[in-house]
């Protein structure tokens, strides 16, 4: 398959990219796992669980995406170093 060669020629960062993808899996999977949070209790500041949990998910996935971004900077630096 062509993407093999697309990824490999200059890449030292494959391990890091695996880590980045792993970090990005929960923000995709957990919001879609509806039975996990589709309930009223426990409430928080008057918010049913259904609502406050999803707000919390926004925060958590934003944090994970920031981490993924920082790791991608490291990965890019590694790759560029490999070319010089």
């Amino acid at each position: 398959m062509s993407q093999e060669s697309a990824r490999s020629p200059h890449r030292r960062s494959t391990g890091l990219w695996v880590l980045i993808v792993l970090i990005l899996i929960p923000p995709v999977v957990i919001p879609l796992w509806v039975p996990l949070y589709d309930k009223t209790d426990p409430t928080l500041w008057g918010f049913p669980f259904f609502y406050w949990f999803q707000f919390l998910l926004i925060l958590c996935s934003a944090i994970l995406t920031v981490i993924a971004y920082l790791l991608s900077l490291v990965a890019d630096r590694k790759d560029r170093g490999a070319d010089r």
């Binding site: 990005l24 995709v28 999803q54 707000f55 998910l57 994970l64 995406t65």
Partner: peptide
């Protein structure tokens, strides 16, 4: 229709996908 709140998980899921 509380199902309308799907807009929230939808806009959570979209960013990791955009990132990749």
């Amino acid at each position: 229709s509380a199902v309308g709140f799907f807009a929230v998980p939808y806009t959570i899921v979209v960013y990791p996908l955009i990132f990749l």
